[in-house]
Design a protein around this nucleic acid. Structure first.
Lengths: 110, 110
DNA sequence: AATCGTTATATCTTTGCTTATATAACGAAA
DNA sequence: TTTCGTTATATAAGCAAAGATATAACGATT
């Protein structure tokens, strides 16, 4: 028997907005408080993480993260309320999608 | 407003079975009658096409294509009835999936 | 002023994927 | 037996994505 797998993401005219990798990175930023620590926790290069966040910002209507540089502790990156909302919405979509895929699996019973 | 995009595929314990690219290749084989012509029509290298078909065969329970080599015309590749069934099933899954994704788009209206 | 860890950015290297190329085996038909 | 276009396979070349490395700018705290 075959298993149905899927990958979902959001786009607009400015390119890809959110995907599963980006959501994972945003969640890591929420727990770590900085982009560099988040990248490290995911064993991702800082450059890749920075590029992802940059792409998110460029395709988003409203800010997803606020970044501060300098100061005691060096600064950090925080997820905005709008960003948190998008994370929640994406999680709901993913859950709904998983349930839908599960309902389709008997399509391939033969 | 964001657009929901997705990519679906089928797996079993032997690896990936069918995805959108493999379905496209199988359809090209149906119309062309050979793997090399199908690859050419999709502007895909023969090796890549061969690797895809090899992976399909290795993960499938029953043969998806029958290949003959030599003979007048050099041989060719044909999609089996089982393969045709899988193509139809995948198309139905894709259509259902598209409708489902469409039903989810107002999740991100804010 | 000095310190600190962060964001931001450029450049170089590397690695893995993809294509390109070449060659052998095949077997029905002429 | 020769010819043909295919499948099958190995190897080399090319290229684009990713990683590694280095460095500057920042600004609150001490």
């Amino acid at each position: 028997m075959y298993q149905i797998k899927s990958r979902i993401w959001l786009e607009n005219e400015n390119g890809i907005f959110l995907g599963e990798g980006r959501i994972q990175l945003l969640k890591a930023i929420q727990t770590e408080g900085s982009l560099s620590k988040a990248a490290k926790s995911l064993k991702m290069s800082y450059k890749k993480a920075w590029n992802l966040i940059d792409a998110i910002n460029k395709s988003s209507i409203k800010p997803i993260v606020t970044k501060s540089t300098g100061g005691n502790g060096g600064g950090g990156t925080l997820v905005t309320d709008y960003g948190k909302l998008k994370i929640e919405q994406f999680d709901i979509l993913k859950k709904n999608c998983w349930e839908f895929m599960n309902s389709q699996k008997d399509l391939f019973k033969d």
